[in-house]
Amino acid sequence: MAVQALDAERLPIDWQKLALPAVLIAVAYGLIPTYASSYLVEAILLPFLALSLAAVGLNLLTGYCGQLSLGSSAFMAVGAFAAYNFNLRVEALPLVATMILAGISAAGIGILFGLPSLRLRGFYLAVSTLAAQFFVQWALTKFGWFSNDNPSGVISAPHLTVAGFSLDGPTGRYLLSVTMVIVLTGLVWRLVNSAIGRNFIAVRDNETAARVIGVPVLRTKLLAFAISSFIIGVAGVLWAFTYLRTVEPAGFNLDRSFQILFIIIIGGLASIRGAFLGAAFIVVFPLVLSRLGAFAFGGLFDSGVLDMSQRIVLGALIIIFLIAEPNGLSALFDRLKRRIGSRSS
């Protein structure tokens, strides 16, 4: 009883909290499909959405549950290749079902490579997630079956249709992507705010205490691996089907895994909003850097120099964020909001 009363009290605050998502959804479904150029969609929004989702998934495992993973892109690869094969080999499988099955495949592999977490902690576990990274990439390249015997292991996206509507154009792919991202992020949001999500945090903050009070530590870790890999797997499908359209196993390499890790460090560990802010940053930052570089140095700033300076700036940002703002852009964003709030009132 007391609980319901409390909920009623909190309701107005909840509305305020819902305002921002409501605006975002209106923008996502109203403004963008009508006004965004196809360059904006293809070069920025589609990679942003796929990477955001992958970062949400990794954040669940690393940010919330405290299990550092260096193999995220392996699970993206599993998702992408599983979706390709389900689509290829199962007659008339609806696209959404394909994606869910791909997510489940990634979750299965995730549990398999999460099993060492039952005995290993910290760096030992992080290194073992690298095993997933290298093994998956090798298996997808080595066994032609995965790519329907394409000589270099390349897969291409099938036609995307949902309920008879073709989604092959930029807007269609965008709508598919944004819908998947919104739905899955919503579910993750519910999860992290539930008792299960608090178990994740308990395991992260003090595994020993968690075990003693009765948190099923092993099950909690495996669940984190499974759900995280599911989400990252679906993100892999979006990456392959809606953004790149053709991918090869080498596209899901260690650098991609690090990129996703960097997204959650820069965006903010254990923050769903952080995953989106970080992904936006990672997608936009190279574009800005190349413009700036070309402006400042002209022809000297070629693609090699761009690549190197990108690495340097990114590495420096990681360290700066870890030192100065461990909670990432998400915390910066909060501070900014508070300042604006205090000024307007």
Binding site: L191, S194, I213, L223
Partner: peptide
Amino acid sequence: LFGGLSVRDNIASGRVHTRHTSF
């Protein structure tokens, strides 16, 4: 304690052994 949780959530976690529900 679990530094990332509120006081109330920390205390509530003490009853986690009575839970039977799935995610």
